[in-house]
Amino acid sequence: MTSVLTISAGLSQPSSTRLLADRLSTAVRGEQGEETAVDVVELRDHAHDITDNLLTGFANQRLRQVLELVDGADGLVLTSPVFTASYSGLFKSFVDVVDPESVRYKPVLLAATGGTERHSLVLEHALRPLLSYLRAQPVPTAVYAASADWGNDTELNQRITRAAGELATAVRTEPERVRTDPFDDPVPFEQLFQDTTAH
């Protein structure tokens, strides 16, 4: 069974970002079939945990469970509201505490919500470069939903369906990721000691 994790960085309840996240999750599940588990995580529920991690360098148990879901997922759906022409601070703070190896080469569907269509380029000038920097594999179609899209959303539905199909295909064809544990093959203490005495 494959797994897809949807992250929603919406701040309000109810949230248009969560609404978009749910529609994307449903579309991905429809493309993947019953053999795919799709989980949704609301970052607002972990805002304090994320801040504590940034301040202390350690994830508490609640946040560690979310980070383990990120690591174990075969694909990700990342959704953020647009604030000041970019992703939200909560979204970026979460990305800052994620182990880059957890998303390396992993298929990712990018999505954002905002008040007007003029913010739609945030997907290409902010979100895509961020995930490319982490060496994730964003699918070609990103989904932006402005306030006007919720009234007559035929075009939004088409984008959701296309993006979900791309993520489903990427997850199915993704080669198995092999994670290496640096503690599996430690450097012998004698060698470390020799290296320090050589100077």
Rank of each mutant, 00 (worst) to 15 (best):
M1N: 06
L5D: 07
L5P: 13
T6D: 07
I7Q: 04
L11C: 13
S12K: 13
S12T: 15
P14W: 10
S15C: 09
T17Q: 09
T17H: 11
L19P: 00
D22W: 04
R23G: 09
S25P: 02
A27S: 11
R29D: 06
G30V: 06
G30I: 10
G30K: 11
E31Q: 14
E34K: 14
E34V: 11
E34L: 13
E34R: 14
E35P: 00
T36E: 03
D39P: 02
V40E: 00
V40L: 15
V41F: 13
V41A: 11
E42N: 08
H46F: 15
A47F: 11
H48Q: 08
D49Q: 14
T51D: 04
D52R: 13
N53T: 15
N53V: 10
N53K: 14
N53G: 04
L54K: 07
T56S: 15
T56V: 10
T56K: 13
G57F: 13
G57V: 13
A59H: 12
R62A: 13
L63Y: 09
R64Y: 01
L67I: 12
L67Q: 14
E68R: 11
D71M: 12
D74A: 05
G75M: 06
L76R: 02
V77H: 05
L78N: 00
T79D: 00
T79S: 14
S80F: 05
V82H: 07
V82C: 10
V82W: 05
A85V: 05
Y87G: 11
Y87W: 11
F91K: 02
K92L: 04
K92H: 00
S93C: 07
V95Y: 00
V95P: 00
D96Q: 13
V98D: 06
V98H: 07
P100F: 06
P100K: 05
E101G: 04
S102I: 01
V103K: 01
V103C: 03
V108N: 00
L109I: 02
A112R: 09
T113Q: 08
T113A: 07
T116L: 12
T116V: 05
R118P: 03
H119Y: 08
V122A: 04
H125M: 09
A126V: 15
L127D: 06
L127F: 12
R128N: 01
R128Y: 07
P129S: 10
L131K: 07
S132M: 01
Y133K: 03
A136H: 08
P138F: 15
V139R: 08
V139M: 12
S147H: 12
A148P: 00
D149R: 06
D149T: 10
W150P: 03
G151I: 08
G151W: 10
D153F: 09
E155S: 06
L156Q: 07
N157L: 05
Q158N: 10
I160T: 01
T161I: 05
A164W: 08
L167F: 09
A168E: 05
V171M: 07
R172M: 04
T173Y: 04
T173I: 06
E174A: 15
R177I: 02
D181N: 15
P186V: 01
P186L: 04
P186D: 00
P188G: 05
P188S: 02
Q194A: 15
D195W: 03
H199R: 11
